[in-house]
Structure formats: C-alpha cells, structure tokens
C-alpha cells in the first residue's frame, strides 16, 4: 500500500466527517420535532431541541390513531410469506437451470434475464386489471403474489454459489440411488444458505421500504407500514409533530435490523450489485 501522507489522512477525516453530517443532519430536526408539544412546535425553530426529551405524547398518539401496530404486523405477514416463497422458488429455478440440460432452457433463461428491461411501473396498468378480475385488490394476497416472483438478480446470486459447488457431489449421490429431489433437498439447499441470506436481506429491505405497489393495491382495509405512514402524512388534520413521531417510529424497525445485520447488509448489497 502507498503510504498515506498526513495531509491525505487529515483530508480524509475532514471529508468523511462532513459526509456523515450530510447524511444524518437532515434527520435531526425530525428527531427534535417528535418530542415537542404542539405549542412548542409552533413557537420554536426547527433546529431548537425540545424542552422535554421524555415527552412521549406524540408517539402514543401516533400509535393509537395511525394503527401503526396493525400495519407493521401486515408488513411482517406480507414479507414473511412472499420472501419465503420467492427464496424457495429462486433456489429451485436456479438448481434446474444450472444443473440440467433440456429443451427450452435457453429461452427460459432469456425470459428471466429480459425482465431487467421491464420496470414494474410500466406493467401495472394491465396487472391492476388482472388483480381486479381475480378480486384481489385491497387484499394482502395481491401484494404477496407480486412480491413472490423469481428475479434475475436472485438467480445470479444463486448461480455464483452453484458454480462453486462441484457437480461431483450430485453425481455421487445419484449413483448411490438418491433421486433429484433428495439431492436438491439434502445437498443443494443447505449449500445455498448464504445466497438465501443475501437475497433475504436485499429484498427484505426493498419490500419493507416499497411504497409503489402497496399504495396501488392496499389503499383500504389492510395497509402496509409505508402506506399507513403515508396516509398519516397525507392527512392535513394531523399535527405535524405527530407525523414526525410516526415517521421516527418508522425508522426504528429498519434501524434495529440495520444494527443487527450491518455487516451482512453492506456486503449483501455490494455482492448483489457485483453479480
């Protein structure tokens, strides 16, 4: 490694500290606001810290009125089912496309690859009609169904790992009389675990944060967490300090996940992007 001059080291710290202020700075007024009383909010500037950091009134109000608890449960249900289905399907598709030669394999692989070109936003005019005909609009299965599809990024992540697992193991098992399903279940699936974790984190964050799909399909009755936050936000009658509290509550689940999984998240994102 090239020796870094004192100057370079200093420059690095100055720049990185500046960048951290840039990253976190805009969130701070929100933090202040969430703890202020209504009177305090209108009387003080956005950069004035709240008088009482233990004022929980806004949070309690947000949880009670915004039905955020129920929305969080809905999001958890949707994520668990759809990610479960998606990950299992991704391992199955990847196993078959990686290990077998068959008629039509190229076409199927191409079909999966070309979905990169079809942004979700360009198909919803028609998909909405389909969901409407299936009577799934405003019901959780609509979003679960859309989230369960196998994506090309997932296939690539699995392929990377499958390429490193030799076919010898499969073939040895085959000679020993195991059938293909047993090979998949006993050999392939356990070895694909790290790829499954990457996919889980990647799409878990993506779906938790997704707004477009749930806002289109789940406007009434059931709501995901993002849509509940949005409706809270969109309701002009709600005092803004309450909205701030609700939003801060919205950061908590992702914050906890982030603190626990920080290492995996960073390398998961980097790994997925590289492949």
């Amino acid at each position: 490694m090239i020796r870094e001059s004192k100057m370079y080291k200093m420059l690095r710290y100055i720049f990185l500290i500046g960048a951290c202020i840039f990253a976190v700075g805009p969130i701070i007024p929100l933090l202040f606001m969430a703890f202020k009383t209504g009177a305090e909010y209108s009387a003080t500037g956005v950069l004035t810290p709240p008088k009482n950091w233990l004022n929980m009134y806004n949070f309690a109000y947000a949880i009670r009125v915004g039905k955020l608890g129920q929305a969080l449960i809905n999001t958890a249900i949707i994520l668990t089912i759809s990610l479960g289905i998606q990950i299992i399907f991704t391992t199955m598709v990847s196993y078959v496309l990686h290990r077998f030669e068959f008629f039509g394999k190229k076409i199927i692989m191409t079909l999966f690859t070309l979905t990169m070109f079809i942004p979700v936003v360009t198909t919803q005019t028609v998909v909405f009609q389909i969901m409407y005909k299936l009577k799934l609009v405003n019901k959780m299965p609509s979003v679960i169904l859309l989230y369960s599809g196998v994506g090309i990024v997932g296939i690539y992540i699995m392929f990377n790992l499958l390429a490193s697992i030799g076919k010898e193991l499969d073939e040895a098992a085959l000679i020993d009389g195991a059938n293909y399903f047993t090979i998949y279940r006993v050999i392939i699936l356990p070895l694909l675990k790290p790829a499954c974790t990457t996919l889980l984190i990647l799409n878990g964050i993506g779906y938790y944060n997704d707004f477009y799909i749930p806002n289109l399909y789940l406007r009434k009755n059931v709501q995901t967490f993002t849509v509940a936050l949005y409706q809270f936000f969109g309701n002009m009658a709600t005092p803004f300090e309450i909205v701030a509290a609700a939003i801060l509550l919205g950061i908590i689940p992702i914050g906890i996940a982030y603190l626990c999984l920080q290492k995996y998240i960073f390398y998961g994102l980097a790994g997925a992007i590289k492949s």
Partner: peptide, 19 residues
C-alpha cells in the same frame, strides 16, 4: 463511517419525504 454513510439509502420514501 461505512455504517453511517449508507443510512439515507435504507429509509423509505415516506420518511425521506417528511424529512
């Protein structure tokens, strides 16, 4: 630094909009 720098990327659209 790595941890702090990617925080904004993890926040959803409603949160970013309010901020």
């Amino acid at each position: 630094f790595k941890g702090v720098l990617i925080i904004p990327y993890l926040l959803n659209g409603v949160i970013v909009s309010t901020i």
